[in-house]
Design a protein around this nucleic acid. Structure first.
Lengths: 252, 252
DNA sequence: CCGCTGCATTTGTCCTAACAATAGCACGAA
DNA sequence: TTCGTGCTATTGTTAGGACAAATGCAGCGG
């Protein structure tokens, strides 16, 4: 099929060998862009790892690690004895640890948020269990309506443990919840998500501009920091005609 | 919090240094089981990488790679200057490249499958695009009803390219589609999935024992082999009260 | 008491080196 | 022709070493 291996060496002319950005990351990110932009076409075979290393003045492990990053993302496929190829399949962006706000902005839409409610309430049994606090603890409950270009897309309900009691409506309307947490130095390491479906409840159909009892796509998430403390527990519901979750799975 | 690092060395007494199973994999799988079984408790700190290597007679890169596997799965967290810890969060099984059949069996249920239809039809515009074949090509269409312990759970519609035209109803009822493809030496490398929700169509509510027009959870998938050829395109719909998708996300 | 400096610990990155395992191909024997 | 054998190319695994960067802590000075 393919004969000549390719290597667009000119893309890697300006590697920063002294800066703080790891070399393997500089390579993998440049390579990813080249593949996504079609500069390296689907199905093309890359040069072998040692030759790439010689072009760039790098060792094989470093090159190998850069390639591994893209294999994990599903952009490249390696086969022993054969080489490394760009996958033919169009890969979609995986479900990542980003917020809906950021997803939409990146897609070129104009997201807006209306804070429906923001209260401090004692945790009931279920909320206490999800946030890993004692029942009755004062927690913060947020309910927001997220729209894109004026069309309502999702209702976001989030529960926060007591230590984030001082957030304001303004923060939420302008910056998004995750962005705000990051600004406080809180970084999310792990999140467990469950995706499902159900009918609309109570006032949800009005907010989302749907018929009463129509289906919504739901996502429940509990997010943890590196120490294992719960940062946030959310229950979101999305208009299924406007939103879906995409994943790319790679076997190993 | 934690003071003494732990290392249950007795779990690693029988490493097979000559067999075909990589050492890093032997370590990571034993370690994973120890964590999931609670032998190493949540929050425990592991010994540092060099010390572990000395216990096992292995080099640091090998130990490091084993640990990395579990970090990617969300079971461990590493911090520079601190060490490696077992995460506090309970991790759920991620969405993997396995079939529903296997998921259910592993969960201790008794799955059964009824083949509703199995035909060869000319590909319409949409099917042709998903399978990357010319419109009008003869393809195989399968429609199955999957139940667990007698309760209907999902309707599975799959399209197969022309080369798999010789499968039989028996194959599908006893072995499951993916198991059957594997038996032919077909291995799936990459799959793109989209998860969404909609109302039931036509006869779906009867098959799934739901009210007419109730919500279903949907999953569309296109699976590719290592060469980028399409193996299968599926549209599945699930009873949302019995099925959901779980994911664990790890930031990097 | 508070803050700063320096040290020890630990993971993060990068290097060189070697051998194993697999796939494809050319070539030769039956 | 056809099958197998061996060669070559390429990735997979493992080793061992070096330095960088981040974290926590003890000790010191203000």
């Amino acid at each position: 099929m393919s004969t000549e291996p390719v290597w667009p060496g000119e893309l890697f002319a300006d590697l920063d060998r002294s800066g703080p950005i790891p070399l393997y990351f500089q390579i993998s990110s440049r390579l990813e862009r080249a593949i996504r932009d079609g500069i390296i076409p689907a199905g093309a075979r890359l040069e072998n790892e040692i030759a790439i290393g010689q072009h760039l003045g790098l060792s094989r492990p470093t090159v190998r690690r850069a390639i591994q990053e893209l294999v994990d993302k599903g952009l490249l496929v390696r086969r022993r004895g054969i080489g490394t190829q760009v996958v033919q399949a169009r890969v979609s962006r995986p479900v990542e640890l980003t917020s809906l706000q950021e997803d939409l902005t990146r897609a070129g839409h104009h997201p807006s948020t209306r804070v429906l409610s923001l209260d401090r309430i004692p945790a009931d049994e279920e909320a206490a269990q999800r946030l890993r606090v004692a029942a009755g603890t004062e927690i913060t409950r947020i309910r927001r309506l997220r729209s894109a270009d004026g069309t309502p897309m999702a209702i976001l309900e989030n529960l926060l443990p007591p230590e984030y009691a001082d957030i304001t409506r303004d923060d939420l309307e302008t910056h998004g919840l995750y962005e705000m947490l990051r600004a406080r130095g809180i970084s999310i390491k792990i999140a467990n998500q469950t995706i499902g479906a159900r009918r609309t409840h109570s006032d949800e159909h009005e907010l989302l501009d749907l018929a009463k009892g129509s289906p919504v796509l739901t996502m429940d998430r509990v997010a943890f920091d590196q120490g294992g403390s719960v940062i946030e527990a959310g229950h979101h519901c999305y208009r299924p005609d406007l939103y879906s979750f995409e994943t790319t799975l790679v076997s190993r």
